[in-house]
Lab assay of single mutants.
Amino acid sequence: AQEYRALYDYTAQNPDELDLSAGDILEVILEGEDGWWTVERNGQRGFVPGSYLEKL
């Protein structure tokens, strides 16, 4: 798994998404072809927009 940093804040719109704060460090589990990536942070897993992340 790769570590990424959130570039922007994101507020989850659905229960299966995660909130992001700019600067958060996340582990990317799966890069979805639809642009939604499965990530894990502090034991929580959910979808976030891949375009909001940069690889560390």
Score class of each variant (00 low, 15 high):
residue 1 A to Y: 15
residue 1 A to G: 13
residue 2 Q to W: 10
residue 2 Q to D: 09
residue 3 E to R: 10
residue 3 E to N: 10
residue 4 Y to S: 08
residue 5 R to F: 13
residue 5 R to H: 05
residue 6 A to Q: 00
residue 7 L to M: 15
residue 8 Y to V: 08
residue 9 D to M: 04
residue 9 D to P: 08
residue 9 D to T: 08
residue 10 Y to H: 06
residue 11 T to D: 09
residue 11 T to I: 10
residue 12 A to R: 08
residue 13 Q to N: 10
residue 14 N to E: 09
residue 14 N to H: 13
residue 15 P to M: 10
residue 16 D to H: 15
residue 16 D to Q: 13
residue 16 D to E: 15
residue 18 L to S: 02
residue 19 D to F: 01
residue 19 D to K: 03
residue 19 D to A: 07
residue 20 L to R: 01
residue 21 S to Y: 12
residue 21 S to F: 12
residue 21 S to L: 13
residue 21 S to G: 09
residue 22 A to H: 05
residue 22 A to M: 07
residue 22 A to W: 03
residue 23 G to H: 02
residue 24 D to S: 04
residue 24 D to N: 03
residue 24 D to A: 04
residue 24 D to H: 03
residue 24 D to K: 00
residue 25 I to T: 09
residue 26 L to I: 14
residue 27 E to H: 11
residue 27 E to K: 15
residue 28 V to D: 01
residue 28 V to R: 06
residue 29 I to C: 10
residue 29 I to P: 03
residue 29 I to A: 09
residue 30 L to H: 14
residue 30 L to I: 13
residue 30 L to F: 14
residue 31 E to T: 09
residue 31 E to D: 05
residue 31 E to H: 07
residue 32 G to A: 12
residue 32 G to C: 10
residue 33 E to G: 10
residue 34 D to S: 12
residue 35 G to D: 10
residue 35 G to R: 04
residue 36 W to F: 15
residue 36 W to E: 05
residue 36 W to M: 15
residue 37 W to I: 08
residue 38 T to H: 07
residue 38 T to I: 13
residue 38 T to W: 11
residue 39 V to D: 00
residue 40 E to Q: 08
residue 40 E to C: 15
residue 40 E to S: 11
residue 41 R to D: 02
residue 42 N to P: 04
residue 42 N to G: 13
residue 43 G to Y: 04
residue 43 G to W: 02
residue 43 G to T: 06
residue 43 G to L: 05
residue 44 Q to T: 12
residue 44 Q to S: 13
residue 45 R to W: 03
residue 45 R to V: 11
residue 46 G to C: 02
residue 47 F to L: 15
residue 48 V to D: 00
residue 48 V to C: 07
residue 48 V to Q: 01
residue 49 P to G: 00
residue 49 P to S: 01
residue 50 G to S: 03
residue 51 S to R: 12
residue 52 Y to I: 14
residue 52 Y to P: 01
residue 54 E to L: 04
residue 55 K to C: 08
residue 55 K to T: 07
residue 55 K to V: 10
residue 56 L to Q: 15
